[in-house]
Design a protein around this nucleic acid. Structure first.
Ligand SMILES: [Mn+2]
Ligand SMILES: [Mn+2]
Ligand SMILES: [Mn+2]
Ligand SMILES: [Mn+2]
Lengths: 129, 129
DNA sequence: TTTGAAAGTTAGCCTTGACTAAGTTTTGTA
DNA sequence: TACAAAACTTAGTCAAGGCTAACTTTCAAA
């Protein structure tokens, strides 16, 4: 839960300079009271700051987690796409898969997408055929 | 939850001709009362049969789900290993990842591991380097 | 400047999936 | 065969993460 929240908060702050509960609820597909309760949990965990009836921001700790999650998210999506999954399915599946990808697996994914993008490897062609 | 249970029950029946709650608890890393409660849920869902104080068996429906899950599990592990993840990490991560792999992604994984095992593709070499 | 709608919170409820403690049934062994 | 240990279930508790209904605060339009 925490990972999806901080990831999305970072994204919203980047795009809108703030993260509002209403937008979190919309994007996460839950109702506003659920967001309020979960944000309280994140506050308890030291990941976000909040003032009542105002926007939500990440703490240093939350921002660090968000960065790691966003990076991992992008890597998982890139890996799925490189394996031939259509981008919409890749995005949808990655949202769940990302939370089960260990550091070792993440490194393997990074190696793979890197080698895939290298035109000399010949991997992309043979895979996509 | 259901997926992990039916998958494991199928595996235990294959290996031991029966699935006992004590073994499920051991393998799933939970306590016996948790297994009892979850098995009741599976009974309600029509996935398993049970007689009190006796072993657990899959219904037709449960066996069908188990087969699909085991197949998907193996494909996910094979994909991770083909991407260079060590087998222990692959097995561990697959246990979580499998539940978020859609049919489209599963097909892409199958295509990938098949092409990887084809000695003519050259993919395995370039990836493992 | 008032005021109504939008946004946010609180309270209370539910389900899932975990646990412990305590009771019941089965089973291996003396 | 008796009985203790192992296996299983029941009862009760808890936290996470959903929901609705109702309340409070904010904000923008009249
Ligand atoms: Mn996610
Ligand atoms: Mn994500
Ligand atoms: Mn699993
Ligand atoms: Mn599995």
């Amino acid at each position: 839960m925490a990972e999806d929240y901080v990831e999305l908060i970072a994204e919203l702050v980047d795009r809108n300079d703030e993260a509002r509960p209403v937008d979190l609820a919309e994007r996460l597909g839950v109702k506003p009271p659920t967001v309020t309760k979960n944000i309280s949990r994140l506050v308890r965990a030291g990941l976000v700051r909040r003032e009542r009836y105002r926007s939500i921001f990440l703490t240093e700790k939350g921002a660090a987690l968000a960065d790691a999650c966003r990076r991992r998210h992008r890597t998982v999506v890139a890996t799925l796409v490189a394996l031939g999954v259509d981008p919409e399915s890749a995005e949808r599946d990655a949202e769940g898969i990302e939370h089960h990808v260990s550091d070792e697996t993440l490194e393997a994914f990074e190696r793979f997408v890197t080698s895939c993008n290298c035109p000399l490897s010949g991997m992309k062609r043979s895979n996509e055929m």
